[in-house]
């Protein structure tokens, strides 16, 4: 008797969801700021100007948006296959390591056109292989992808620290500030006054569009969705859930690895221990907030990038710790989870 049409269900669901989450999130943040005797308008103005007041700041914000968009795109594959790719941070780190390894080759300095491209490809492959490791652990060893991914994150963290403090340490110094800067010729070039490399922006946008296209308009996307929603039943349609899951992990890891590589070549120009900057985990929140759909991801990623970029202004302008942006992110995510839970409960009763 209860007939549900997917399209009708989606539209009303999404509109209600958007307004509820926005209202709840902003309400919670305002309440918190009022109790701290802070004006939400002042904070918003300060963060807004920190992120968007001039092109340098906007391009800085876009340099955060780029890895967020890549990680979120990668996570869309794994979430769609019903997998929690917690190992995304590790995949980003391994991507960054592989990129650095290629750029540290002696031949790199003589071939400035080829090697940055090779390095990006190495990052993509490195992240993809690291993602596949979690998938193989799940398929062959029965290790849940959450635990496998978490374990591999620790391994990746160990490897990056060992490299920075060991074989790749700066001459005479080994510190948390990372390896030596790469030769300038191997950096992704940015026009003057830009803090983001246009190549990185284009790559991220392309990756996102390709992800949306693959998931929404191809046989692979349909099969991925089928596996994510009911892997048992998908077998009856001739689909191999293990293979589809592994492919999703590989693609997700690959995009995270590319994000890691872009952090090396486009942002830090060296390998640092905190190369992932927590963007992988933030990507998880973005995809959850977007309801595991591609459409809203660029906007939500932009909002989080603004928060991260704008929060730098808080200690300078208002003598407030920049961790306030983390509180705002948390409030948004909790609101989203609350609204999602409430809607699910309502739908079931």
């Amino acid at each position: 008797m209860l007939m549900k049409t997917i399209q009708q269900h989606d539209l009303t669901h999404l509109v209600i969801r958007f307004f509820c989450i926005t209202g709840l999130g902003f309400g919670a943040v305002c309440l918190l700021l009022f109790t701290l005797h802070l004006s939400p308008i002042t904070i918003a103005k300060s963060m807004g100007s920190g992120a968007l007041s001039n092109w340098i700041r906007i391009s800085h914000m876009l340099s955060i948006w780029t890895p967020l968009l890549l990680c979120s795109s990668g996570l869309l594959f794994t979430f769609r296959a019903g997998l929690w790719n917690i190992g995304i941070e590790g995949q980003m780190i391994i991507g960054a390591i592989c990129t650095t390894a290629v750029l540290r080759l002696p031949q790199a300095e003589n071939s400035h056109a080829l090697f940055p491209a090779l390095a990006m490809a190495a990052g993509l492959c490195g992240g993809g292989i690291w993602g596949m490791c979690a998938g193989i652990l799940k398929n062959r060893g029965g290790v849940n992808e959450i635990f496998g991914g978490l374990g591999l994150n620790f391994v990746a963290q160990g490897i990056i620290l060992w490299l920075i403090f060991g074989p790749w340490k700066r001459a005479g110094i080994a510190s948390m500030s990372g390896t030596n800067l790469l030769p300038h010729a191997l950096w992704l070039t940015s026009p003057a006054g830009w803090r983001v490399a246009p190549v990185a922006l284009v790559l991220s946008c392309l990756a996102f569009l390709l992800t949306a296209l693959l998931l929404g308009n191809t046989r692979f996307g349909l099969r991925l969705t089928a596996v994510g929603k009911n892997s048992k039943a998908s077998r009856l349609f001739g689909i191999k859930p293990e293979l589809i899951g592994l492919t999703a992990m590989m693609l997700g890891g690959g995009l995270a690895g590319l994000a890691g590589g872009l952090q090396v070549t486009g942002v830090y120009h060296r390998l640092i221990p905190a190369i992932s900057s927590g963007y992988g985990y933030l990507g998880l929140l973005i995809v959850m907030l977007a309801g595991y759909r591609a459409a809203a991801i660029p906007c939500i990623a932009l909002f989080f990038a603004c928060l991260a970029a704008g929060s730098i202004q808080l200690p300078i302008m208002l003598q407030i710790d920049s961790s306030l942006s983390g509180v705002i992110q948390g409030a948004c995510v909790l609101s989203a989870l609350l609204v999602h839970g409430f809607q699910t409960k309502r739908r079931n009763t």
Partner: peptide, 26 residues
């Protein structure tokens, strides 16, 4: 519902999966 069909997927999508699914889907 737990073993044969895919909750959340439409009748059209089920039939697409069961048939020779085209590479690109509109």
């Amino acid at each position: 519902l737990n073993e044969g069909l895919i909750p959340g997927m439409s009748i059209r999508e089920h039939l697409l999966l069961a048939d020779e699914t085209p590479l690109v889907i509109f």
